[in-house]
Amino acid sequence: MNHSVPARKVRVATCSLAGCFGCHMSFLDMDEAIVPLIETIEFDRSPLTDIKTVSQCDIGLVEGGLCNEENREVLHQFRQHCTYLVAVGACAINGGVPAMRNHFSLQECLEESYLNGIGVVDAQIPSDPELPALLPKVTPLQTEVKIDFFLPGCPPPAAAFLELIQAVLENREPQLNYTIRRFD
């Protein structure tokens, strides 16, 4: 791949909300392509860096949908700080597997998990104030903020991440060709 080295490295923040980190794994799954990429990008807040708060970035990659208040807060921070906000993967785009709980009320979900579930000992619904409040429904990112690009897939293939970053470097819209535009 022919990367033109920009004057300044593209700053990328990533996070996983109601997701499984599978999209992050896929991002790292680009094998040797990651080597030239190191020349062109640097990471801000990300599980890869362990930086806890997001600062001004070019790209924000957000995996997972919104299932609790903390997710919303993080998403809004990303929106504020990122020039391009990218919904990464099925959960960020349509709620994905966590959104399967939308078929039940939140109370039903909690009762099933913490009161009536198989093998529950000392049954009680967690109510520690430290825990972020759950949202009544799991929703995709676009219900809350403006999303600039979408990388579909569960997870999106590594090539899709590469194309996205390449497009931003070249100041153009990402073009996901047929083989990397996947919903599964």
């Binding site: 785009i93 959104a99 995709p140 047929y178």
Partner: peptide, 14 residues
């Protein structure tokens, strides 16, 4: 895929 869809655009009705 063929129409270039990457996301739902509309909020899911669930």
């Amino acid at each position: 895929y063929d129409l270039g869809m990457t996301h739902y655009h509309y909020d899911p009705f669930s």
